[in-house]
Amino acid sequence: MDIQDFRQLLDTHGADPARWPQAMRAAALTLRDRNPQAQAAWREASRLEALLRTRPAETAEDRLRAARVVAASMARIRAEAAAREASLAARLWQEWRWLFARPVGVGLAGVMLAGWFAGQGLLPLPPRGDPVLELLLTEPLALFEEDVS
């Protein structure tokens, strides 16, 4: 291996010997340790990669910034959920409001009224004890005839 091969190795695999191909590693390490040019190239590559890996420790401002971004995302999610609900209600009204328009509305009111009367007829009987109510429920015609006479 010569210095050109070694530079090629650094470009291809980086400065970490653990990432160098096994077949080239021994020769490359020997060259790095014996050749000043190879050693300088390796140091330069190592330093650059260390810089690339380095980043400042997280500051309080970094944490606040991240929290702000998360809060803004939550706000957006909630706003969109509220807008979706509002639009669903509006869509339902648009689709079904014809039910409340005339003359369908009048028909609907009639059906509702008929339903109310039918419901009244199906209600359970009131408690016994009131003679007038008993008469009304059991002998309505007799009561009518008595009034006429």
């Binding site: 910034r65 991240a66 998360v70």
Partner: peptide
């Protein structure tokens, strides 16, 4: 579930910002 979202968002926002 918003609580699960918040947990994941707080975990991943810092590296994504970097």
């Amino acid at each position: 579930e918003e609580a699960a979202f918040r947990l994941l968002a707080e975990r991943h926002a810092p590296p994504l910002l970097r």
